[in-house]
Amino acid sequence: MGCLLPIAYCLCLWEIRKGLPGNFVETRSSYFYKSSHFLRSSYFITALAPFSTSNGGGETKHHEGCTVRLLRRRCRRPQVSDAAGEVVEVGSGVNSFKKGDKVVGMLSFLNGGGLAEFAVTTMAAMAIRPPEVSPSEAAGLPIAGLTALQSLKAIGIKFDTPNNSSNILITAASGGVGHYAVQLAKYAGLHVTATCGARNIELVKSLGADEVVDYKTPEGAKLKSPSDKKYDGVIHCATNIPWSTFEPNLSSSGKVIDITPNFTTIAASILKRITFSKKKLIPLMLVSKSGEMEFLLNLVKEGKLKTVIDSVYPLSKAEEGWAKSISGHATGKIIIEI
């Protein structure tokens, strides 16, 4: 098989090939999101996942919570890491999946690989997709959904027991991570304040947010709650908001979870720890967990969580879809269809 594009892991309508290492699975995809060792490209639907590029400051800009090395380097290719598909072959050590299983998961978010028909992935990177969940709905979940879920857990939110009354702020709430975070926070019984652009206020309200603020207004820029509530936690999905803006809006032990951490975030986080500050800044390091992926899929299956799809592009126009993703103006997820 030739190497048409880079890809590391892909999930959608995938086709597995023979001779795989023991714990690997190869698949033919229908929907993708991001990865790095391309095998072949034909039909599949790719959900464009967030992807990292270098900005002029030498730090890495992250999209949708994709945490990568903070190096000064340019990204030479789209790195799509989310995918949903069908298993066509498994390695000898694979015992959780079999040929014909419909799966979804996250490829290597360092290298991508989702813009392909075929991909190889590990057992830990994917989960069975219920028939009630469409490939396009599933393909948007892995990075953005897991980032939202793990951010809430980092604040201390639980999903198996009732939570104390907590006030949560979610910035960039109409984006890929943000729109999942709003829904998951409401599912957990939290009071949600959200920021977004004026055109998306009604959408974010429909997802369950209790208060929605236009980030371009003076109050929105200050991140103030319209009801003057202090935040027990913040899921920070935007960029370029300093700690000094968050701090006066936090409760006495409030936490800010930064899903796009850079050197400044990490340094500030360390400083908060060594000074024993009760208010904390926590950089999120996303980890792929199949159990959490199954939890999200079940919520979608039960109608308690949905993927908002901004737009769908054919593979021939994947570059346009990628450009929209990088522009930061997408509402929800972008899907690439083959």
Rank of each mutant, 00 (worst) to 15 (best):
H62W: 15
H63Q: 10
E64D: 08
G65E: 09
G65V: 07
G65R: 05
G65S: 04
C66S: 10
T67V: 09
T67S: 10
T67K: 07
V68C: 15
V68Q: 12
R69W: 10
R69P: 12
L71C: 09
L71Q: 14
R73N: 06
C75K: 06
C75Q: 09
R76D: 11
R76N: 15
R77D: 08
Q79A: 14
A84F: 08
G85F: 00
V87S: 01
V88Y: 11
V88N: 12
E89K: 07
G91K: 13
S92Y: 10
S92H: 07
G93P: 01
G93S: 12
N95F: 14
F97C: 09
F97H: 07
F97K: 04
F97S: 13
K99Q: 08
D101L: 05
V103Q: 05
V104G: 02
V104E: 05
G105P: 09
L107Q: 10
S108N: 06
S108Y: 04
F109L: 14
F109Y: 08
G113R: 00
G114Y: 03
G114L: 01
G114T: 05
L115C: 11
E117I: 00
E117W: 00
V120E: 04
V120P: 11
V120D: 09
M123R: 11
M126F: 12
R129T: 10
P130Y: 14
P130I: 11
P130Q: 13
P130A: 08
E132K: 10
E132H: 08
E132Q: 14
E132D: 09
S134G: 12
S134F: 05
P135I: 14
S136V: 07
E137C: 06
E137F: 11
A138Y: 13
A138Q: 03
A139Y: 00
P142M: 03
P142V: 08
I143R: 00
A144K: 02
G145F: 07
A148R: 10
A148H: 01
L149R: 15
L149G: 08
L149K: 03
Q150F: 05
Q150I: 02
Q150T: 04
K153P: 00
A154N: 13
I157R: 08
I157K: 05
K158V: 15
K158A: 15
D160R: 01
D160F: 06
T161W: 11
T161N: 10
N164T: 14
S165C: 14
S166Q: 11
I168G: 06
I170F: 01
T171V: 07
A172I: 06
S174E: 03
G176C: 02
H179F: 02
Y180M: 07
A181E: 12
V182S: 05
V182G: 07
V182F: 09
Q183C: 03
Q183M: 01
Q183N: 06
Q183I: 00
L184F: 03
L184R: 03
L184V: 03
K186Y: 02
A188Q: 11
G189H: 05
G189W: 05
L190Q: 05
L190S: 04
H191Y: 10
H191V: 13
